[in-house]
Design a binder for these strands. Sequence first.
RNA 1: GGCGGUAUAGCCAAGUGGUAAGGCAGAGGUCUGCAAAACCUUCAUCGUCGGUUCAAAUCCGACUACCGCCUCCA
Length: 472
Amino acid sequence: MVLKVFNSLNNQLEVFEPLEAGKIKMYVCGPTVYNYIHIGNARSVVAFDTIRRYLEYLGYQVDFVSNFTDVDDKMIQAATADQTSVKQIAKKYIEAFYADTKALNVKPATNNPRATENIPEIITFIQSLLDKGYAYVVDQNVYYRARRFPSYGQLSHQALADLETGASQHVSKTELNQKEDPIDFTLWKAAKPGEISWETPWGTGRPGWHIECSVMATKYLGSTIDIHGGGIDLEFPHHENERAQSEAKTGQQFVKYWLHNGFVTVGATDEKMSKSLGNFVTVHELLNKVDPQALRLMMSTTQYRRPIRFSQAALDEASINLKKLQTAYQNLHYRLAGALVGTDFKFDQKVRQLQADFQDAMDLDFNVQNGIAKVYELAKLGNVYAGEPTVFADSLNLILHDLACLAGIFGIQLKIDQIDDETITELLKEREAARARHDFAKSDQIRDQLSSQGIILEDTAQGTRYRREFHS
RNA sequence: GGCGGUAUAGCCAAGUGGUAAGGCAGAGGUCUGCAAAACCUUCAUCGUCGGUUCAAAUCCGACUACCGCCUCCA
């Protein structure tokens, strides 16, 4: 099968063909760094990380750029509230972002550019839009002439007339009065006294929100990129505007495939989790309570376009499933010790079939639900195999490799927790002797003793295996 | 009001014409000295109404409920 993705530009499933064979240019809108990221923000990060990992699994070289918005109204407000600078706020929450996403096992981006580090390019970009007549200056503010861009509204599937009617709600009166047209949007915002600002030919101020992504995406990836991602709430106006700016400037198609992820919802009514509604849980605080891997499993195994209902039950289920995968992986590894040299061809065939099924599932717009179902089937296949009296090393290694590889696409790290401890080995010998003479009181006492230290014993046909207790 | 999305078992969730994947929870069982881990069996007619068809969760029409976007939001 071939990879198909749902392109928001036309709301259709399309065969994925990169601009350049074997390479993918991908840009994902990152957070405004005025607070810790919440589960909803993390969902976006995780969804596109899984997409990226799958693309890499397919053999593509992915150039992955994701920005930090480190200057805007919210940043200024946060700095004022904390009696510090915008720069300090940015520093604090960018560091927190790295810590949180690392815990979620998100692969670092190729590049994380920041708005404030690209001001000259932003100014040049805006100047170019001014020169071409796509923008105009009013009192040191610069606005984009949306109506001038022929297909404005195409990405969000909105008619200009409809946009106009809804245009006034969140916009200040002064801004509205300055605009030629209510659908025009800000490219550059004049600074109030004391605010962080930069000098430009048209006055002193700071970039509008949308322009930075156009500038950084084209600067770091080129005029046309393969994939542009972000939350569905960014489709309009953010991405619509990015598209208008970029294509007006370069005269080329900005993005080939627009991908938008769904929300994390909370509560009985499935409300969107958002900073403005105040119903959010930050990753920072949640990481103290749950295994980050369980959180990752919960978030990465819902298809990116679908909403995720955030709940304790969902987290609990994820940790149970994580434990099952981890256990299967360890038990298979345990069997390597007594395995015969060679291969079980029939078994290998089943493993390869499941891997092919996995790929078929993922090829359909990253259908992770069907994908993870195959990973669970793989684990079950492995569990059955591990219970066989005779196993082959090559086959064990094959399924171990596949399990780790496929789970890895979801950001799940299956690993062997090797414990080499002489005391445990001695106790195990002692317990074995006790069991041999049917002294079960003694053997159970040893098992309880180790259990209290977090070491779990399991008696199998191949002897007693031990592992650390899983925590979730 | 405009545009978009969702509705499948107690819960999560696959499935775009041929008689409902997978997971969690539940029930029963196997293995075990007892456990643990694991395995096996079992558990739904698909929001409502109407239509097309030999055949529909899947197509058409109407309706209902919930969510989102409409220039702060991943």
